[in-house]
Design a protein around this nucleic acid. Sequence first.
DNA 1: TATGAATGAGATTTCATTCAT
DNA 2: TATGAATGAAATCTCATTCAT
Lengths: 199, 199, 199, 199
Amino acid sequence: MVQIAVARSGPRSQEKRAEILRRAADAFRRRGFHATGMRDIARSLGMTPGALYYYFRSKGDLLYFCQQHSLRRLLGEGRAILSRPGGEGEKLRTLIRAHVETLLDETGGSAAHLEVRALPSGRRPWILAQRDAYETTLRRLITRGVRSGAFRPVDPKLAALAILGAVNGIVLWWKPEGPRRPAEIAGAFAEVLVGGLER
Amino acid sequence: MVQIAVARSGPRSQEKRAEILRRAADAFRRRGFHATGMRDIARSLGMTPGALYYYFRSKGDLLYFCQQHSLRRLLGEGRAILSRPGGEGEKLRTLIRAHVETLLDETGGSAAHLEVRALPSGRRPWILAQRDAYETTLRRLITRGVRSGAFRPVDPKLAALAILGAVNGIVLWWKPEGPRRPAEIAGAFAEVLVGGLER
Amino acid sequence: MVQIAVARSGPRSQEKRAEILRRAADAFRRRGFHATGMRDIARSLGMTPGALYYYFRSKGDLLYFCQQHSLRRLLGEGRAILSRPGGEGEKLRTLIRAHVETLLDETGGSAAHLEVRALPSGRRPWILAQRDAYETTLRRLITRGVRSGAFRPVDPKLAALAILGAVNGIVLWWKPEGPRRPAEIAGAFAEVLVGGLER
Amino acid sequence: MVQIAVARSGPRSQEKRAEILRRAADAFRRRGFHATGMRDIARSLGMTPGALYYYFRSKGDLLYFCQQHSLRRLLGEGRAILSRPGGEGEKLRTLIRAHVETLLDETGGSAAHLEVRALPSGRRPWILAQRDAYETTLRRLITRGVRSGAFRPVDPKLAALAILGAVNGIVLWWKPEGPRRPAEIAGAFAEVLVGGLER
DNA sequence: TATGAATGAGATTTCATTCAT
DNA sequence: TATGAATGAAATCTCATTCAT
């Protein structure tokens, strides 16, 4: 089930596909989609550019599967968190922490879900739908918190966007070799962002 | 004084330069720097691509001056706000509102200051310095608030990055033709983001 | 009569035309025809590129008139030298010295007659004819010297080309600010080319 | 050993690289570097312009490797000649003949070492150094001849430049399809430049 | 006479992609 | 499965030239 994100079209080794996605995601995150060439990705894998096309149809598909992987994981975690018992504040903190840690999880190579504009148009709808679903999950949690009185009466949509912007923005400055560990960042962001909602 | 950002190299009408920058910034914001061609910018101005080079040395320079314009304005406003009397909470709200409105001010054509990676290397240091200066301004305000007891004991650097991520992220989804006015967004973000810091 | 090379089409100040040609020739000599832009020439004159077109039809024409000027002078001197009394050896030495000094005469700005390939096709025949005429003059002098016994029995055409190659090549390395004066070079070349190296 | 000039960066068949260099050198020699487009070179090889970039990084590099090839060969021959026994006059004649034949050797595709100004700045120092080394070789031979009394007391530097100018100038007028064979030209030039014209 | 502005053709170069082997 | 080689479209940029003023 875990491999669904990656498994496709028969024999093509899933491991290799996953490895490629990891490197691609890493490159996209560091340099941006357009500034990253297939050459760069291939070189970082010790392959030739042509070989990548045995595993993926196009550069756009590479981006698509990166984002798919990311979003699937985020959405899974998000829904799991929502369905647990507990107060909205605590749930939201947990969700933000999970989001940050997923984003910065190097081995997962995720975090490429920002450059939606670069997606091949045929792939975009699916990603947008998933992204909306995730945003909806988040918004629903906020709405509940507002209703229950746990949160102040904010506009849930804008609050959700503020939170997403803050956490997604991390990838623009964070570097694995930098001083801050993901958990530290995750905790601080959860505190600052949820504190603003709670009464 | 506003035009300083734009005035350079003799006659080359500043108005035209400003007009070009506006359109370029708009295009960069919508499609991203790499996905925007000189053709696109020229067409939106009713010019030929070559004509742009009469006003700007390169596409990278176009980005540079967009960012310069943006940052100059943000920094000016930021410093002005800090030097006024008042509590840190209120100042921070004002600063966030000003930031959002600057970012979304279409006629200013600003908001392109996100794609630092795409800057020509010779131009990057200046932009990074200005960006750091702005971040420092924000961090300093937060630090003061923490010291004065107005804010909770957060890590000022991470708090600043959370706020900046949230507000800068707006340009990724906001469209002039959408339902929300800049002022509305500005107010909501200020509330959510500052509320999290205040005791 | 002297101005014929430059005077054309009525009022257009001949002085200005001459001044432009001097600068153009200088630029062509230093950087080569293709690497020299109309901008460069205009800037060195304190003009705008457009203004040059008031005086000359095209960049190719600029080259043409430079070469015309050069060749006219060389040919005039060459013929004068030939018609004087004296031995062929001495005449050839004088001709070489005159050629070198003309070539390196900065104020004359000549020496641009090397890049024949760059001439507009309509202008080429005239230049080629003049160049041939000059070469013929030189060849004739050598032929006479061979006949008179002053020179060894060389192939006059190849000998002429050797001499021309040697002297024209000077512009590829000589710089006004360098240590050698034109007269010094002229003398040395005349000696080596006419007298040879061996005793 | 000959291929060292060409061997680089892995497989990229050296034969193809050499073939490209030959054509490029030929085109540069005929039309000049700036007047030769990558299109021209590609067409003469039955390729697309883009394909050239699989073998060479840039047009400037094409020029660089042409010159490198030329200079390596010239320098090798020059040094070999100097180290042989014999009188300076005879050695100089041999060197000039070798130089001319190398220059006009079509299959070698050499002779492009004149347009130093067009070299990419990073490549220029190497070429200039090699060129200086060659000139030094020649100058040294002349100096020895002067000391030994075989040559008249000329300025060795200027004499060397005269000889180089004469032989390099050949490429400006020589065409493979013309009437004179390289050996004929080589002999005549050697005779005139070493023996002079006068008896 | 000269300028600011613009044009349009062309140059080099990049890059995702393909394909025979 | 993978590679070397090649393609072709597009991108940025340059530059001689024109033209209204």
